[in-house]
Protein backbone atom coordinates (compact mmCIF):
# COMPACT_ATOMS: atom_id res chain seq x y z
CA UNK A 1 0.00 0.00 0.00
CA UNK A 2 2.38 2.63 -1.26
CA UNK A 3 -0.38 5.24 -1.37
CA UNK A 4 -1.10 4.99 2.37
CA UNK A 5 2.58 5.20 3.19
CA UNK A 6 2.93 8.29 1.06
CA UNK A 7 -0.19 9.86 2.48
CA UNK A 8 0.92 9.29 6.07
CA UNK A 9 4.28 10.81 5.26
CA UNK A 10 2.88 13.93 3.59
CA UNK A 11 -0.35 14.55 5.45
CA UNK A 12 0.45 13.78 9.08
CA UNK A 13 1.49 16.70 11.24
CA UNK A 14 2.38 17.50 14.82
CA UNK A 15 0.78 20.60 16.34
CA UNK A 16 4.21 22.00 17.22
CA UNK A 17 4.80 22.59 13.49
CA UNK A 18 2.20 25.35 13.71
CA UNK A 19 3.35 27.13 16.88
CA UNK A 20 3.87 30.42 15.03
CA UNK A 21 0.37 31.82 15.38
CA UNK A 22 1.30 35.20 13.96
CA UNK A 23 2.38 33.57 10.73
CA UNK A 24 -0.71 31.37 10.72
CA UNK A 25 -3.05 34.35 11.10
CA UNK A 26 -1.23 36.17 8.30
CA UNK A 27 -1.65 33.15 6.02
CA UNK A 28 -5.32 32.90 6.96
CA UNK A 29 -5.87 36.56 6.12
CA UNK A 30 -3.99 36.19 2.85
CA UNK A 31 -6.26 33.31 1.87
CA UNK A 32 -9.28 35.40 2.87
CA UNK A 33 -10.62 32.62 5.07
CA UNK A 34 -12.99 32.87 8.02
CA UNK A 35 -12.98 30.25 10.74
CA UNK A 36 -15.72 29.24 13.17
CA UNK A 37 -15.24 27.09 16.25
CA UNK A 38 -18.13 24.85 17.21
CA UNK A 39 -18.27 23.31 20.68
CA UNK A 40 -21.14 20.80 20.82
CA UNK A 41 -22.34 20.47 24.41
CA UNK A 42 -24.60 18.50 26.69
CA UNK A 43 -24.05 19.14 30.41
CA UNK A 44 -20.40 20.21 30.24
CA UNK A 45 -20.33 22.86 32.98
CA UNK A 46 -17.12 21.46 34.46
CA UNK A 47 -15.01 22.02 31.36
CA UNK A 48 -16.76 24.51 29.09
CA UNK A 49 -15.60 27.67 30.94
CA UNK A 50 -11.97 26.83 30.51
CA UNK A 51 -12.37 25.92 26.83
CA UNK A 52 -14.10 29.19 25.97
CA UNK A 53 -11.62 31.29 27.98
CA UNK A 54 -8.58 29.72 26.37
CA UNK A 55 -9.84 29.83 22.79
CA UNK A 56 -11.19 33.36 23.11
CA UNK A 57 -8.12 34.77 24.78
CA UNK A 58 -5.50 33.03 22.67
CA UNK A 59 -7.17 32.53 19.31
CA UNK A 60 -9.58 35.44 19.07
CA UNK A 61 -8.26 38.33 21.21
CA UNK A 62 -4.52 37.71 21.06
CA UNK A 63 -4.24 36.11 17.61
CA UNK A 64 -7.42 36.58 15.52
CA UNK A 65 -7.50 33.06 14.11
CA UNK A 66 -11.11 32.42 15.07
CA UNK A 67 -13.87 34.67 13.79
CA UNK A 68 -16.53 32.99 15.84
CA UNK A 69 -16.73 30.79 18.95
CA UNK A 70 -20.05 29.05 19.31
CA UNK A 71 -21.54 26.56 21.69
CA UNK A 72 -24.34 24.45 20.21
CA UNK A 73 -26.19 22.72 22.98
CA UNK A 74 -28.48 19.70 22.99
CA UNK A 75 -30.47 20.90 26.02
CA UNK A 76 -28.08 20.92 28.98
CA UNK A 77 -29.70 20.79 32.40
CA UNK A 78 -26.68 22.23 34.18
CA UNK A 79 -25.07 25.68 33.82
CA UNK A 80 -23.21 24.95 30.57
CA UNK A 81 -24.90 27.71 28.60
CA UNK A 82 -24.66 30.40 31.28
CA UNK A 83 -20.98 29.68 31.83
CA UNK A 84 -20.16 29.65 28.11
CA UNK A 85 -22.02 32.90 27.62
CA UNK A 86 -20.40 34.61 30.60
CA UNK A 87 -16.98 33.96 29.09
CA UNK A 88 -17.95 35.33 25.70
CA UNK A 89 -19.08 32.42 23.51
CA UNK A 90 -22.10 32.66 21.21
CA UNK A 91 -24.60 30.22 22.58
CA UNK A 92 -27.29 28.35 20.61
CA UNK A 93 -29.76 25.64 21.40
CA UNK A 94 -29.73 23.04 18.62
CA UNK A 95 -33.53 22.95 18.66
CA UNK A 96 -33.71 26.69 17.90
CA UNK A 97 -31.67 26.33 14.72
CA UNK A 98 -33.79 25.49 11.65
CA UNK A 99 -36.91 25.31 13.82
CA UNK A 100 -39.00 24.24 10.87
CA UNK A 101 -37.40 20.81 10.95
CA UNK A 102 -38.39 18.09 13.36
CA UNK A 103 -35.85 18.27 16.22
CA UNK A 104 -33.52 15.34 16.78
CA UNK A 105 -31.17 14.68 19.69
CA UNK A 106 -27.55 13.80 19.22
CA UNK A 107 -24.10 15.27 18.85
CA UNK A 108 -24.26 14.89 15.06
CA UNK A 109 -27.37 17.07 15.04
CA UNK A 110 -25.42 19.92 16.69
CA UNK A 111 -22.53 19.52 14.28
CA UNK A 112 -24.86 19.53 11.30
CA UNK A 113 -26.82 22.55 12.46
CA UNK A 114 -23.56 24.42 13.04
CA UNK A 115 -23.12 24.48 9.27
CA UNK A 116 -26.30 26.49 8.98
CA UNK A 117 -25.77 28.69 12.01
CA UNK A 118 -22.08 29.52 11.76
CA UNK A 119 -20.50 31.73 9.15
CA UNK A 120 -16.96 30.43 8.69
CA UNK A 121 -15.42 29.02 5.53
CA UNK A 122 -13.86 26.50 7.86
CA UNK A 123 -15.60 24.98 10.84
CA UNK A 124 -13.52 23.39 13.56
CA UNK A 125 -15.27 21.04 15.93
CA UNK A 126 -13.85 20.41 19.40
CA UNK A 127 -15.51 18.28 22.07
CA UNK A 128 -16.38 20.21 25.19
CA UNK A 129 -15.30 17.59 27.72
CA UNK A 130 -11.53 17.89 27.34
CA UNK A 131 -9.95 18.73 30.67
CA UNK A 132 -6.44 19.44 29.34
CA UNK A 133 -7.71 21.86 26.72
CA UNK A 134 -5.12 24.02 24.97
CA UNK A 135 -5.14 26.33 21.92
CA UNK A 136 -3.31 23.60 19.96
CA UNK A 137 -6.61 21.71 19.74
CA UNK A 138 -7.75 24.38 17.31
CA UNK A 139 -4.66 25.73 15.58
CA UNK A 140 -3.26 22.23 15.06
CA UNK A 141 -6.37 21.34 13.08
CA UNK A 142 -7.00 24.47 11.05
CA UNK A 143 -3.38 25.09 10.07
CA UNK A 144 -3.20 22.33 7.39
CA UNK A 145 -6.34 23.80 5.80
CA UNK A 146 -4.85 27.30 5.80
CA UNK A 147 -1.50 26.24 4.39
CA UNK A 148 -2.74 23.69 1.86
CA UNK A 149 -5.69 24.34 -0.43
CA UNK A 150 -5.92 20.67 -1.40
CA UNK A 151 -6.63 19.63 2.18
CA UNK A 152 -10.31 19.59 3.05
CA UNK A 153 -10.69 17.60 6.23
CA UNK A 154 -8.23 17.51 9.16
CA UNK A 155 -8.57 14.93 11.89
CA UNK A 156 -6.97 14.99 15.35
CA UNK A 157 -5.06 12.12 16.86
CA UNK A 158 -3.39 11.82 20.24
CA UNK A 159 -0.19 9.97 20.41
CA UNK A 160 2.33 11.17 22.95
CA UNK A 161 2.79 8.41 25.51
CA UNK A 162 3.34 9.36 29.14
CA UNK A 163 6.47 7.22 29.27
CA UNK A 164 8.09 5.10 26.64
CA UNK A 165 11.45 3.42 26.54
CA UNK A 166 11.97 3.53 22.77
CA UNK A 167 11.63 1.07 19.89
CA UNK A 168 8.39 0.09 18.23
CA UNK A 169 5.09 0.68 19.99
CA UNK A 170 1.49 0.37 18.98
CA UNK A 171 -0.01 3.65 17.94
CA UNK A 172 -3.71 3.90 17.72
CA UNK A 173 -7.06 4.88 18.95
CA UNK A 174 -9.39 3.63 21.60
CA UNK A 175 -11.01 0.27 21.96
CA UNK A 176 -13.77 0.81 19.41
CA UNK A 177 -11.26 1.96 16.84
CA UNK A 178 -9.05 -1.04 17.28
CA UNK A 179 -11.76 -3.66 17.63
CA UNK A 180 -14.31 -2.40 15.13
CA UNK A 181 -13.26 0.43 12.84
CA UNK A 182 -9.83 -0.70 11.88
CA UNK A 183 -10.90 -4.24 11.00
CA UNK A 184 -13.80 -2.86 8.93
CA UNK A 185 -11.65 -0.31 7.15
CA UNK A 186 -9.01 -2.94 6.54
CA UNK A 187 -11.63 -5.04 4.80
CA UNK A 188 -13.45 -2.40 2.78
CA UNK A 189 -11.53 0.91 2.77
CA UNK A 190 -7.92 -0.02 3.38
CA UNK A 191 -6.64 3.44 2.53
CA UNK A 192 -8.55 4.90 5.46
CA UNK A 193 -6.55 2.80 7.91
CA UNK A 194 -3.85 5.45 7.65
CA UNK A 195 -6.04 7.68 9.78
CA UNK A 196 -4.73 6.99 13.23
CA UNK A 197 -7.77 7.96 15.23
CA UNK A 198 -10.80 7.79 12.97
CA UNK A 199 -13.21 8.38 15.86
CA UNK A 200 -11.60 11.46 17.41
CA UNK A 201 -14.18 14.16 18.00
CA UNK A 202 -11.92 17.01 16.96
CA UNK A 203 -11.68 17.96 13.29
CA UNK A 204 -11.63 20.99 11.03
CA UNK A 205 -13.43 20.94 7.70
CA UNK A 206 -14.07 23.29 4.82
CA UNK A 207 -17.67 24.42 4.40
CA UNK A 208 -17.72 23.28 0.78
CA UNK A 209 -17.26 19.74 2.07
CA UNK A 210 -19.51 19.97 5.12
CA UNK A 211 -22.48 21.17 3.10
CA UNK A 212 -22.17 18.19 0.76
CA UNK A 213 -22.12 15.29 3.21
CA UNK A 214 -24.68 13.41 5.29
CA UNK A 215 -24.65 13.71 9.06
CA UNK A 216 -25.70 10.73 11.15
CA UNK A 217 -26.93 12.41 14.31
CA UNK A 218 -25.60 9.76 16.68
CA UNK A 219 -22.50 7.65 17.03
CA UNK A 220 -21.81 7.19 13.33
CA UNK A 221 -20.99 10.76 12.41
CA UNK A 222 -17.20 10.45 12.35
CA UNK A 223 -17.23 7.15 10.46
CA UNK A 224 -19.68 8.39 7.87
CA UNK A 225 -17.62 11.54 7.31
CA UNK A 226 -14.50 9.54 6.62
CA UNK A 227 -16.22 7.23 4.14
CA UNK A 228 -18.19 10.00 2.42
CA UNK A 229 -15.30 12.44 2.11
CA UNK A 230 -13.06 9.61 0.96
CA UNK A 231 -15.44 8.42 -1.76
CA UNK A 232 -16.16 11.97 -2.91
CA UNK A 233 -12.70 13.55 -2.77
CA UNK A 234 -10.17 10.77 -2.23
CA UNK A 235 -7.56 10.20 0.45
CA UNK A 236 -5.61 13.34 -0.35
CA UNK A 237 -8.44 15.49 0.96
CA UNK A 238 -7.49 14.34 4.48
CA UNK A 239 -4.76 15.37 6.83
CA UNK A 240 -4.23 14.52 10.50
CA UNK A 241 -2.50 16.30 13.34
CA UNK A 242 -1.00 14.88 16.51
CA UNK A 243 -2.27 16.96 19.42
CA UNK A 244 -0.26 15.06 22.06
CA UNK A 245 -2.63 14.06 24.79
CA UNK A 246 -6.31 14.37 25.37
CA UNK A 247 -7.59 13.87 28.88
CA UNK A 248 -11.25 13.04 29.29
CA UNK A 249 -13.38 10.62 31.20
CA UNK A 250 -13.19 7.02 30.10
CA UNK A 251 -16.34 5.33 28.91
CA UNK A 252 -17.61 2.01 30.16
CA UNK A 253 -17.35 -1.02 27.91
CA UNK A 254 -21.12 -1.05 27.71
CA UNK A 255 -21.24 2.50 26.32
CA UNK A 256 -18.62 1.50 23.81
CA UNK A 257 -20.87 -1.37 22.76
CA UNK A 258 -23.67 1.09 22.05
CA UNK A 259 -21.31 3.28 20.12
CA UNK A 260 -20.08 0.35 18.05
CA UNK A 261 -23.58 -0.69 17.19
CA UNK A 262 -24.43 2.79 15.89
CA UNK A 263 -21.22 2.93 13.92
CA UNK A 264 -21.90 -0.46 12.35
CA UNK A 265 -25.28 0.73 11.10
CA UNK A 266 -23.69 3.77 9.49
CA UNK A 267 -21.00 1.66 7.98
CA UNK A 268 -23.28 -0.99 6.52
CA UNK A 269 -25.60 1.62 5.05
CA UNK A 270 -22.68 3.08 3.15
CA UNK A 271 -21.20 -0.25 2.22
CA UNK A 272 -24.52 -1.20 0.66
CA UNK A 273 -24.96 2.11 -1.15
CA UNK A 274 -21.48 1.80 -2.58
CA UNK A 275 -22.19 -1.76 -3.68
CA UNK A 276 -19.55 -3.13 -1.38
CA UNK A 277 -21.87 -5.47 0.44
CA UNK A 278 -24.42 -6.99 -1.90
CA UNK A 279 -27.72 -8.59 -1.10
CA UNK A 280 -27.59 -7.91 2.58
CA UNK A 281 -30.86 -7.90 4.50
CA UNK A 282 -31.89 -4.70 6.29
CA UNK A 283 -30.06 -4.71 9.56
CA UNK A 284 -31.57 -4.95 13.01
CA UNK A 285 -31.77 -1.89 15.19
CA UNK A 286 -31.74 -3.76 18.46
CA UNK A 287 -28.51 -4.20 20.35
CA UNK A 288 -28.54 -7.02 22.81
CA UNK A 289 -26.31 -6.90 25.85
CA UNK A 290 -26.10 -9.18 28.82
CA UNK A 291 -25.83 -8.19 32.43
CA UNK A 292 -25.41 -10.16 35.60
CA UNK A 293 -27.80 -9.81 38.51
CA UNK A 294 -26.83 -11.78 41.60
CA UNK A 295 -26.24 -15.26 40.18
CA UNK A 296 -28.34 -14.93 37.07
CA UNK A 297 -27.69 -13.32 33.72
CA UNK A 298 -30.27 -11.30 31.89
CA UNK A 299 -30.43 -9.80 28.45
CA UNK A 300 -31.20 -6.16 27.92
CA UNK A 301 -32.31 -4.78 24.60
CA UNK A 302 -31.35 -1.35 23.40
CA UNK A 303 -32.99 0.30 20.43
CA UNK A 304 -30.31 2.24 18.57
CA UNK A 305 -31.39 3.71 15.26
CA UNK A 306 -29.00 5.80 13.25
CA UNK A 307 -31.11 8.55 11.74
CA UNK A 308 -29.52 10.88 9.25
CA UNK A 309 -29.78 14.46 8.09
CA UNK A 310 -29.51 15.25 4.38
CA UNK A 311 -26.68 17.39 3.03
CA UNK A 312 -27.23 20.95 4.31
CA UNK A 313 -27.24 22.21 0.74
CA UNK A 314 -30.58 20.51 0.19
CA UNK A 315 -32.23 22.59 2.92
CA UNK A 316 -34.22 25.45 1.48
CA UNK A 317 -33.38 27.89 4.27
CA UNK A 318 -29.70 27.18 3.81
CA UNK A 319 -29.88 27.71 0.07
CA UNK A 320 -31.49 31.07 0.71
CA UNK A 321 -29.06 32.11 3.41
CA UNK A 322 -25.92 31.23 1.48
CA UNK A 323 -27.40 31.72 -2.00
CA UNK A 324 -26.50 28.25 -3.26
CA UNK A 325 -28.32 25.47 -5.06
CA UNK A 326 -28.12 21.73 -4.74
CA UNK A 327 -26.72 19.92 -7.78
Amino acid sequence: MKKIKEWIQNNTYHHSQFWDLKKLVEAKEKEGLTISLCLPTLNEEKTIGKEVILFKSELADRYPLLDEIAVIDSGSEDNTLEIAKSFGADVYLADDILPGLEPKKGKGENLWKAIYQLKGDIIVYVDADISNIHPRFVYGLVAPLIYNRQTKYVKAFYDRPLAFSGGIRPSGGGRVTEILIRPLFSLYFPELTGIIQPLSGEYAVRREVLEQIHFPIGYGVETSHLIDVYTKYGLDAFAQTDLDQRVHENQSTRSLGKMSFGILQTFIKRAKALGIIEKMEDHQTILRQTQAKEDTYEQIELEITEEERPPMIEIEEYQKKFVVKAD
Partner: peptide
Protein backbone atom coordinates in the same frame (compact mmCIF):
# COMPACT_ATOMS: atom_id res chain seq x y z
CA UNK B 1 -10.08 36.42 29.38
CA UNK B 2 -6.38 37.01 28.84
CA UNK B 3 -5.77 37.00 32.56
CA UNK B 4 -7.70 33.79 33.17
CA UNK B 5 -6.20 32.09 30.13
CA UNK B 6 -2.73 32.87 31.47
CA UNK B 7 -3.78 31.55 34.86
CA UNK B 8 -5.00 28.29 33.32
CA UNK B 9 -2.03 27.76 31.05
CA UNK B 10 0.58 28.66 33.66
CA UNK B 11 -1.25 26.85 36.42
CA UNK B 12 -1.48 23.61 34.47
Amino acid sequence: EILLANLVMLGE
